[in-house]
Design a protein around this nucleic acid. Structure first.
Lengths: 247, 247
DNA sequence: TCCGATCCTTGATGCAGATCAATGATCGGG
DNA sequence: CCCGATCATTGATCTGCATCAAGGATCGGA
């Protein structure tokens, strides 16, 4: 179960380590968010309004009801899921350490968010976060830039979903993951994917069977080597990129 | 051909009406952007950095090279196109009067923008726009909010492209257009679509034939009446919304 | 280390929507 | 008002991926 830590409701007798940890998590996140010194006032406000969650793998991130939510991924990895209808989920985005996620109070679809592995997430009511940012132009601008990045990624995803074949989607996915969470390894790139085949399928608008087959194709082409469920080694990103179907 | 008006390079002998029009266009746009009084200084800066374009139907909106672009749709309607490869275009978004569009300098795909009908668009270098916004918290916040709206719409589009049937996509499209540019008309909603069937297909990840057939289906169900190429009357939005496949 | 549950892979078949093809409607320009 | 070009509709066929089905690998917990 998710461990809540309302930063402003910390009992006076609480272990000081806990308080320092929470504050450190907020400070660390904001430091990654914009590379400028953070004012103590902003930090205080963020600690006061935010809720730090420690989540186990697979756990739900409780989005606020009746208002928008801003989630900061301090540690780990998460998925943002839109439910079109029962048995039809679309993963809108994966998020990793340092990402800032905005979820509206209610859009066309119902959204939910889950941890892909043990994670630490800082939650804000969107309005409260915006209010703090309003008083700190640096934070406001950093938030705008992050939101733009999310928009650009989402547009690219839309192109893939609307106009690409299964193999092109798979190649694009692997390239994106290589860029975001890959580690260099003897000329190639090693991935330790935190998401399941089902997650990949739900992200690419494909079934698990198709995902599995496409990975198999790349394996036979010598462009991917799998090791267990989560590790994929990509020996030749340059050749793989040809399969993405980008211009 | 697009008529450029570099607001800061207006010859001294220029017709005063032109200058007033340009300034009025900027002021009008910003007024719609955030419902707070705009400082004269911000307005001056925007006029100095912006380029007002008057475009005919079908004309290209020249995106800046080597840097991001911010486009403000003062009048008319535009489409934002991602080119996956020759003969495979994905329309990422349609934009209407009052919309603010951010396009990155270079993402995974090549983007372009076209006017769907006679339009007036205000262009900025993204960096220059951000610099002005940095000096005007209200403008910065309004830009953030608009960017979030674009992101939320894009996510909804991704859900449609990834997990919905042709008829569901078509129903969603009609509902969105009804909300954005529809006019009430005797209990129903009248649409005068500025985009072609090809545009609709390229937006929904479908072919023109499928788009045409789906509209035909809704016509037979008594949920849509067409008049010429562009006018569609939706007599029963409530029933149509059932077909969107939303929860 | 063994066991059960879950996840992944691989094969056979079906279908929604693409593609191919042809006719009909619409509309701007002379 | 007419003409040609473009756009939209409708029908026939094809195909990529979904769906259905059946093993096989992986991994956490006892």
């Amino acid at each position: 179960m998710a461990a809540f830590r309302h930063l402003n409701e910390m009992p006076k007798t609480a272990c000081h380590d806990d308080i320092r940890d929470s504050r450190a998590a907020v400070a660390g996140f904001v430091a990654r968010l914009h590379h400028a010194p953070v004012s103590g006032r902003t930090l205080d406000a963020l600690c006061k309004q935010g809720t730090l969650l420690t989540l186990g793998k697979g756990e739900d991130i409780p989005l606020l009801t009746g208002q928008g939510t801003v989630a900061c991924i301090c540690e780990g990895a998460t998925k943002l899921i839109a439910t079109a209808s029962r048995q039809r989920e679309q993963i809108v985005a994966f998020h990793f350490r340092g990402d800032l996620v905005s979820i509206p109070q209610s859009g066309e679809h119902a959204y939910s968010m889950k941890a892909l592995k043990d994670s630490e997430v800082l939650l804000f009511a969107a309005e409260a976060f915006l209010k703090i940012a309003r008083g700190d132009p640096g934070l406001l601008e950093a938030t705008l830039v992050r939101t733009q990045t999310a928009l650009f990624r989402c547009r690219d995803k839309a192109v893939g979903l609307g106009r690409k074949s299964a193999s092109e989607r798979m190649a694009s996915f692997l390239m994106i993951m290589a860029e975001r969470i890959g580690t260099n390894e003897g000329g190639g790139c090693l991935l330790d994917l935190p998401m399941s085949r089902r997650d990949i399928g739900d992200s690419l608008g494909l079934t698990i069977e198709t995902v599995s087959r496409q990975i198999g194709e790349f394996r036979e082409l010598g462009l991917a080597e799998t090791d267990g469920r989560s590790r994929i080694f990509l020996p030749d990103l340059k050749t793989l990129s040809i399969y993405t179907g980008h211009v």
